[in-house]
Nucleic acid binder design. Structure first.
Lengths: 289, 289
DNA sequence: CGGGCTATTGATGTAACTCAATAAAGGTGG
DNA sequence: CCACCTTTATTGAGTTACATCAATAGCCCG
């Protein structure tokens, strides 16, 4: 079973315990543009005859890699179903989780620049992805303004998401990070039509920790703490959201870090313009477990 | 002097101590496509008559904002000269520095998705920027393949850069972050034709700290420590790089975080393929000041 | 020549990491 | 189906890297 022939060309990154991206054709195989647009939460492209253009589906089983670092780039992927992670791998082989893509998310954008993927995507569950050959996409986009907008828009959205991530890693406490992580998962599930109150984590504590810049123990402890307070219920990978509002407003800013001067300057500047608006005199601070 | 009339529509983010983006026209005013491509380190676009298409320059003085959060988006900027910072501002007015753009960098990509900038860009020195009206750019790109590639490429590059940032924030120690920051600055300066061995920081310790997810004290102390060891020299904002290699290889991974399982799995998988290659038995560890 | 930024440095605190032990879950093969 | 092994999760005790608070001194600018 470990006998995959190592046909890879990449260094440490090679076929894992599970097998390599062997795209088996089966199940529902093709999507048209309309379905693709729906997945991306975009208005369908009117000028495009939806039935003509078809995009192929590919299935991956849990543990399989969609693409590896350094592999040459030629296609983007949209997640049609299933859960994945994308990771960076440093010079020691350590994984750094970058995202947990799920239905509607776009994969592979990082490969455009250098024509090689710079991250690795792995299926955390059985997945169904739609292949978007990049060349084909850009060619099409020349004829269809809306598609062009979509492409730029989706890439920009990805960038904004990462900026938010940087902000979170740079400024929030462990508890706040975990809380936000749960909230954002909950919202994603809601958006996908699942329950936002009760769901299963598809990733390990270790992966969550990597994603949030924390250790798995800290993640575990924080979840337990939230459980104690009654904000959530935790049983292994089953999470129940009991008090979404508390989660949402939970922040314990490492206070003075970026505050102080800047905030005061801003207050000064707006003082007369806005006569003491919503300034939250002392802020909630419902951390402390 | 504080009497700017507050014509803004944004909440806390409004005209600061310095004046608002008042684009004074002067100096060298226009660039053609060839110059733009050079700035972005891209091969010039052959199919484009370089002289016809001109892009306007705009100057900003130290402290001025190029764009603010929420402001409606319609143009990208390329830095022609000068130094800037881009920041996110959270619900309490805290700044989170996202990047320090300089010559050749692209600004404003985050605005494409929602048609509003989601970050704020501020000049840290007098700057000269080139305006790239986004509509104009995309229109052009339909006729000129290379320009289209450039656009996607630059956006993708930006994304990759942010992914690297996330990796750094998620996994590296304070010292490693500061070291890498110095190295990357040094490389940027070299690339711009300045000395890579001696340069001035354009930003405060506070801004560096925000960028790296550290406090200004930690940044200051770390610089002092590097100075003690002789890796660099520090005098206020003047930095001398003494031992670039040491800086480059300085990492003190908070060890087990992401390692352990993953690294071992990988080693196992490649064991036979690569008969014990470069594994650095105990790793350098030249931290300890 | 003040007065506000900015940087440095020290003393102290604590959030999060590390190490370690246990237990529960999940998968595999007999 | 049950023993076995691996992976994952939980929890405790001790450590430490970094933050916090505070005091001083150098810069820069009007």
């Amino acid at each position: 079973m470990f006998s995959t022939p190592m046909s890879e060309l990449r260094p440490a990154v090679s076929a894992s315990s599970s097998m390599e991206a062997g795209r088996q054709r089966q199940g529902r195989l093709w999507s048209n543009m309309k379905e693709v647009c729906e997945l991306l939460h975009l208005p369908a492209i009117s000028t495009l005859n939806a039935e003509e253009l078809l995009f192929q589906h590919v299935q991956f089983k849990t543990g399989q890699r969609i693409h590896t670092i350094g592999q040459s780039f030629d296609t983007l992927y949209i997640v049609n179903s299933g859960f994945l992670k994308t990771v960076l791998i440093d010079e020691f082989g350590n994984e750094q989780v970058l995202s947990f893509p799920m239905k509607g998310d776009l994969l592979g954008v990082d490969g455009i620049h250098s024509r090689h993927y710079t991250s690795e995507a792995v299926a955390l569950s059985d997945c169904d992805l739609i292949l978007l050959p990049f060349k084909k996409l850009t060619a099409l986009s020349r004829a269809h303004l809306e598609l062009e907008n979509m492409l730029y828009g989706v890439m920009s959205r990805e960038l904004v998401r990462e900026q938010a991530m940087i902000g979170m890693l740079g400024a929030l406490s462990a508890e706040a990070r975990v809380a936000r992580f749960l909230v954002s998962l909950s919202e994603r599930f809601a958006q996908m039509g699942y329950s936002s109150k009760l769901f299963n984590l598809r990733m390990t504590r270790h992966e969550i920790g990597s994603y949030l810049g924390l250790t798995l123990e800290t993640v575990s402890r924080t979840l337990s703490a939230f459980n104690e307070i009654g904000m959530i219920s935790v049983d292994q990978r089953t999470i129940g959201i009991k008090d979404a509002e508390a989660l949402r407003s939970l922040r314990r800013l490492p206070p003075s870090r970026t505050r102080g001067k800047s905030v005061q300057a801003r207050l000064r500047a707006t003082a007369r313009a806005e006569p003491a608006t919503a300034e939250l005199p002392a802020e909630p601070l419902l951390a402390a477990y």
